[in-house]
Design a protein around this nucleic acid. Structure first.
Lengths: 192, 192
DNA sequence: GTAAAACCTTGATTTTTATCAAGGAAAAAT
DNA sequence: ATTTTTCCTTGATAAAAATCAAGGTTTTAC
């Protein structure tokens, strides 16, 4: 499974064999069955995690026990709870696998070493963070601006690959609307 | 006005006199009157901007002409459109002053040089970016989880200083609810 | 292969929120 | 100081969305 990560990296940056070996040596592959947790609320998240295969979700549970999905992570995406990672505080999130999945884990310490020792790697990570931040600003904009229907359209446009493999009620949770409302939006759209 | 920025920096990191002088030499002070634009949609944003005094807002305008406020920036906050800054593309945002304000501008190029040449400065910036990202994740969570009333309560709790100096309808815009609804929420709360 | 669980849809009803409209208070501009 | 603009509130109404409930389908687990 390391080859998936290697391909992801070498598609974007040039790495020597020793560098790839170095990255490989600190990478740990972890398989997850459906519904299996990668992180539970209260635990401290200490890794960087790259999804080689499958689909995860990051979510929080409110006082009434309702789940609210912050993010879906499919192949070639990064997963994790950056807040817990950076602050060292217990996470408020759960991460679990929606499908049988494989993730590649690198501890924070090893990851930082890689960033320092392999500058192009560090550069890639910074670029990724930039893009992630921009995407989160965009999501805030969508959230405060769009109607439920527009939010759904925007979602399937931005994430066509996710919208086909994730249950509807999870998309509703991600968008912050009820599953019933989303079901009705979808059926109305298909009539047009 | 540079002293406000100098204090902000030296409260967090240790800087030598020459370093402060170096920072000062690339800083440009700009005064803004009420409603004056710092950035208009379509322009490329090329700076880092630190608010020394006053209050700005960053917002977008939708097809129907409605404003949606992405962020308020008061003293000791950073303003700008990171998307345009990093991509070099025309901004989709407006930034203007809600009050008479003073901002300190540093061009992207000079700013990057400072980060490289003064490592503690770069470190501070990275930390700031981390916290900003975490805050944006938190805002997304609030958006998809909370009711309008809870969103408002959360806002005045997180930003008591902003909530007292910004018009109500702008807070409504920031939260993604109508001004009338927010007015009613507030009057109901005060009855309790 | 079958039972159980998860998922989606639809209807009826209630709750929440937006919209439209108008009046008054407060603040800004000159 | 006064006019103008902005801002806030309140009411009435319409629209949107949540909730409750139930039935049917699909998928998963064993």
């Amino acid at each position: 499974m390391f080859d998936v990560f290697a391909k992801y990296l070498t598609d974007k940056i040039t790495l020597s064999e020793p560098e790839l070996t170095q990255i490989s040596s600190v990478s740990v592959i972890r398989k997850l069955r459906r519904r299996q947790y990668l992180l539970q609320e209260g635990d401290v998240w200490r890794h960087y995690a790259f999804v080689c295969k499958g689909c995860l979700r990051i979510y929080r549970i409110d006082e009434e026990g309702n789940e609210h999905i912050l993010k879906f992570c499919i192949e070639n995406w990064w997963a994790g709870d950056r807040e817990s990672l950076l602050t060292g505080k217990p996470s408020r999130c759960f991460i679990d696998a929606i499908e049988e999945s494989t993730v590649l884990l690198i501890t924070k310490e090893n990851f930082n070493s890689l960033c320092n020792e392999i500058p192009v790697f560090g550069g890639l990570v910074n670029e990724l963070l930039d893009r992630t931040y921009i995407a989160s600003q965009e999501r805030i904009h969508v959230n405060i601006t769009y109607t439920s229907e527009e939010k759904y359209k925007d979602f399937i446009e931005k994430y066509p690959d996710i919208s086909t493999r994730v249950p509807l009620h999870m998309i509703a949770s991600y968008l912050g609307i009820s599953a019933e409302t989303l079901s009705r939006i979808r059926s109305q759209n298909s009539k047009k």
